[in-house]
Design a protein around this nucleic acid. Structure first.
Lengths: 231, 231
DNA sequence: CGCGGCTTTGATGTTCATCAAGTAAAGTGG
DNA sequence: CCACTTTACTTGATGAACATCAAAGCCGCG
């Protein structure tokens, strides 16, 4: 109980600055002893839809997709997010279950903190509560905003939009490896797989992008932007 | 400052049980003095997209639509919610603006509490923070869930879904007045106005619903359910 | 080397948006 | 209260956008 751990890794964690900024040293130390890190390989399922929520989880490294099954083999992708963007939507009430799954699109590191401890922290540390509220509100705003962005576009615009999203938000480069299959892009934007592929081929033929399997190079970002704006 | 107000209306407010449950009497009293209630007529705009967020607002009575403009005359409806379901997605950071508007679909009563005071309460009262977090998480889950529900259906299923939503969640009756125009239903489900009307007409011809202007009676909820399930 | 999954492309038909024209309803000013 | 204007609603016809189906190519993996 009185164990002093000078090497507490949470001290230097980037996430500390985002949500745990206002914890004092003692709390950080306790957090360190309460949290556990889990590593997932590409394709592993991190959170199962229908399971009970017991931990507060956030993404430290890697890339995940958040999605909902609605029948065998059929799924809708809610979000594809990178580190420090995803935290689970803790409902904080007993007896609440995940209504989505989360899986790793790349090798991924997840930090879990027991919900009871989070609840305790919230109770005694208001600044922490504000930080967490802010984080959750911002995540939800992003998700809803992206839903609307995608919904108002047509097929061409949707595909252009996600390409730009992957390039700018996820990979920060105009040449990148697609983190998902063609079918997953379709599940993301709510279109059929065949038409997603067709649209990519058209972009390729029009020399707007270059495609090497999973690798995409955006040649003419301006034109993509134009399509994304409504075309 | 020392004013004792035995008649504090917040004491008996239903919303107190939802979010402000864990405030002590002194805080409730202070809340009472910090909050102000606003009344809106049907059609009034309560929150303007683009305006700075200064208050925590929640819906006490009435019905509102939450929506985003993306060009003149064009809007997307994010949610139609009833009392105690809507609270604004407080971002709690300075310099943050609403990225949606809220307007009254019926005569509506909104309670506003200055954000600084909410921030103060969050800081010193963890149970309050947990309640607010829970409320926000649940609201966002509902919105996202409904988005997915609507997206995976075709035109007929979407219209059937919203009719059942209005009947069950909003009006608690199989005969009710539509709180929105046909165009707004279209903006809600992301289809064209003409096709929403066409679908309603088909339901009417098939004797699944009866339509008297804005009044709808669901005659065969089972068939609507069937269409809503995917048909 | 052969199997299975992902990808690609074409052909076909369905679903849906759009346009247009007309009707009902609701607000507005005299 | 009525004529007028405007806005909401309705319906049909047309074409565009998109899903679906099917067949074939590619690619990784055992």
């Amino acid at each position: 109980m009185e164990r002093i751990d000078k090497q507490c890794v949470c001290e230097s964690c980037e996430f500390k600055d985002i949500v745990f900024r206002h914890l004092d040293d003692a709390d950080i130390l306790e957090l360190c002893n309460n949290k556990h890190e889990n590593y997932y390989r590409k394709g592993d399922i991190i959170i199962y839809q229908g399971h009970r929520i017991t931990d507060f989880k956030y993404l430290k490294r890697g890339l995940v997709k958040v999605y909902r099954h609605f029948s065998d083999e059929d799924e809708q992708i809610i979000a594809i997010t990178k580190p420090f963007e995803f935290v689970n939507n803790i409902a904080l009430i007993d007896g609440v279950f995940y209504n989505y799954s989360v899986s790793a699109l790349e090798d991924t590191e997840i930090c879990s903190v027991n919900m009871d401890f989070i609840r305790e922290l919230l109770k005694r540390n208001g600044s922490f509560a504000i930080g967490l509220l802010t984080k959750m509100a911002s995540m939800n705003n992003k998700i809803i905003s992206q839903f609307l962005d995608i919904r108002r576009r047509n097929l061409t615009g949707k595909v252009a939009y996600v390409l730009l999203y992957f390039a700018r938000e996820i990979n920060h480069s105009m040449i990148f490896d697609l983190p998902v299959s063609r079918k997953e892009i379709a599940d993301y934007i709510g279109m059929s797989t065949a038409n997603v592929i067709r649209t990519l081929s058209e972009f390729k033929n029009d020399k707007i992008i270059k495609v090497y399997g999973k690798t995409i190079e955006i040649v003419d970002a301006g034109k993509l932007e134009m399509f994304s704006k409504k075309g």
